[in-house]
């Protein structure tokens, strides 16, 4: 699989090409539409929206909704804005991504380079964990977090995300290391390098592309999670997504759509940024895993 452009043998006529460009453009508009709506409406006063001007550019430009969404909007019962929840998410995402990626790298290394009987079954067991409907683990997980004293804490959420993310990271690293020449491992063994030395000195320096994939994937998934956050977070560990939902669904008072849009962008910003900055490495890394190392 390669997503890079290549010469295609297919030729199309001029009318057809124009049509194709039109369709592609139409869908560019379709995919951009919600983002446009969010951005323009987050910088206009509320009256402009309620007055039927949702699609218009702002007549009066204001950053007031952003400021409010960030620091003073009513979330639940406290008028704190989204900022504390933003930091909650960061505090949860960073360790969860780091731990699950390290575990995935080690698992991938063992499963490809130190194969043992039934290793594929072990991998299958780990992998299937990413695909279960998480509703099936909600009840026991809540109980377990309580038993461990992690109920309602950020570390509880870190644990949850590590457990249900390690399947993906293992998958990525396993596929990547599977095409990493085993002869290199053998050469290093003869050279006298041990298990961790081989990992540290030989494999890890070549793992950049897949580490990027794993980190982006985990970051996006964990940042965007709602179910676990809503189920297990305490008042002071709620992540951004849960807070945003509370902000938008609040049933009291005037609906401040502009603040909601600003909040939505704030919640989307980290993952969008990662996608724009590193998205191309993500695709490249994924392909490197499936073609060859």
């Amino acid at each position: 699989m390669s997503i890079a452009t290549q010469d295609t043998a297919i030729r199309t006529g001029r009318v057809m090409r124009t049509l194709i460009y039109l369709v592609l453009l139409l869908f560019v508009l379709f995919y951009m539409l919600p983002l446009y709506v969010m951005v323009v409406n987050s910088v206009k006063p509320l009256e402009e929206i309620t007055g039927g001007g949702m699609m218009n550019l702002p007549q009066v430009f204001t950053l007031e909704p952003w400021a409010k969404a960030w620091s003073s909007a009513q979330i639940g019962v406290e008028p704190t804005g989204l900022s504390p929840y933003f930091w909650n998410s960061i505090k949860m995402v960073v360790p969860a991504v780091a731990i699950s990626t390290v575990l995935g790298a080690l698992n991938g290394y063992v499963l490809t380079k130190w194969r043992f009987k039934y290793d594929t079954i072990v991998f299958g067991l780990i992998l299937f964990a990413c695909f279960i409907p998480f509703q099936i683990v909600l009840i026991p997980m809540a109980k377990m977090l309580g038993l461990m004293g992690l109920a309602g804490t950020t570390w509880g959420l870190v644990l949850v995300h590590v457990v249900y993310g390690v399947g993906f990271t293992t998958l990525y690293f396993r596929n990547y290391y599977a095409v990493f020449p085993t002869e290199l491992i053998r050469a290093a063994q003869i050279d006298g390098a041990g298990f961790f030395q081989i990992f540290w000195r030989i494999l890890l320096p070549s793992s950049g592309p897949i580490a990027v994939v794993s980190i982006i994937w985990q970051f996006t998934n964990i940042w965007n999670d709602f179910l676990f956050g809503a189920s297990f977070a305490g008042a002071d560990s709620q992540p951004m997504t849960v807070a945003l939902n509370n902000l938008v669904q609040a049933s009291h008072g005037v609906k401040e759509y502009n603040v909601h849009f600003a909040g939505a962008i704030l919640a989307a910003l980290p993952t969008l940024l990662v996608y724009i900055v590193a998205g191309r490495y993500f695709v490249r890394g994924l392909m490197a895993g499936s073609v060859k190392g």
Binding site: E183, L184, G192
Partner: peptide, 20 residues
């Protein structure tokens, strides 16, 4: 006995040079 303790050396088909 571990490969590294046999006092042998091996040249591989793919050369197996450490790329980094």
């Amino acid at each position: 006995v571990h490969p590294s303790k046999r006092n042998i050396a091996m040249v591989f088909q793919s050369y197996a040079l450490y790329p980094n």
